[in-house]
Design a protein around this nucleic acid. Structure first.
Length: 254
DNA sequence: AATGTTCACAACCGCGGGGTC
DNA sequence: AGACCCCGCGGTTGTGAACAT
């Protein structure tokens, strides 16, 4: 995807600023240095990176590169239809609070979601025109392709459902489900899939009625593929209910 | 085939909040 | 108290790819 292209050659800039900071696309070598730095020192103290890792990048640039691109827990690939529906839901609720929305989509960054929204939905608010109709058609074609991919993904997910139910049963036994940070995550290949309960259809009237918010954890019925596993990290809805710790938020450095 | 338009996304910027001295 | 630093957020820009005409 974009990685090889961006890392492989620069696109006409890669400027050295007056202060000596490099700007523009990151090279594979810089990525390696930054990754090595984080392995050794952990996330944070970004302004030390230049000195300690031998990078000619300012802290801000390093942090951004790590958070949006190099973090190992990042999901690659297209936004799935169910991720899209979460984005729509949460955007309707919170507006452009991209980082908040991103916390409900493990492996996705605020930048990614922001870009996705701008590309796919911002223009749709305008009056339909020929051009937008064509764009819509293109989008639908892509979406159809995504759906196919998603169905394949669901097949993998079904394998994990048994595991999730097993964990939930254990949690029920221990009556321990009021600990949102304890919500299980299931590994699927390189991806970590959070397993929050599915929202009900009337969530827009009620705020978010994800059942676990009251500590009542239930496994969603396997009604259909599209909605079945709409479970990603909504314990981070502390903004809504104000009483959930977000310390388990994905990817946040301490 | 050439040209124009739109999409996708990495990266930058400015700003503000929180912590520390 | 306030100056400074670090960090994170949201908005914007720039560029190549993909698509349409």
């Amino acid at each position: 995807m974009y990685l090889g292209m961006m890392a492989g050659h620069h696109m006409g800039w890669g400027i050295i600023e007056e202060e000596g900071w490099r700007k523009g696309p990151w090279t594979a070598e810089e990525d390696g240095l930054l990754t090595e730095y984080v392995k050794l020192h952990g996330e944070g103290r970004w302004n030390s990176v230049a000195r300690l890792a031998g990078l000619k990048r300012n802290g801000k640039s390093c942090r951004l590169r790590w958070v949006n691109y190099l973090r190992p827990e990042l999901k690659r690939g297209q936004i799935t239809p169910h991720e899209e529906s979460i984005i729509l839901d949460l955007h309707a609720r919170w507006g452009n609070r991209w980082s908040t929305i991103a916390r409900s989509l493990p492996g996705r960054t605020d930048n990614e979601i922001k870009n996705y929204w701008r590309t796919h939905f911002k223009k749709k608010a305008k009056v339909p025109s020929d051009a937008s109709e064509k764009a819509k058609n293109r989008f639908l074609r892509r979406k159809q392709f995504h759906n196919q991919q998603h169905q394949q993904q669901q097949q993998h997910l079904q394998v994990n459902q048994e595991e999730v139910k097993r964990i939930l049963a254990l949690l029920d036994e221990n009556n321990d489900t009021k600990m949102p940070c304890f919500w299980p995550q299931v590994k699927q290949g390189m991806e970590t899939i959070s397993t929050y309960p599915h929202h009900t259809t009337d969530h827009q009237e009620q705020g978010f009625n994800y059942s676990m918010l009251n500590g009542n954890v239930s496994v969603p019925e396997a009604s259909n593929n599209e909605d079945n596993f709409l479970w990603d990290g909504l314990w981070n809805l502390n903004d809504v209910h104000g009483n959930f710790s977000s310390t388990c938020a994905t990817g946040k450095a301490s």
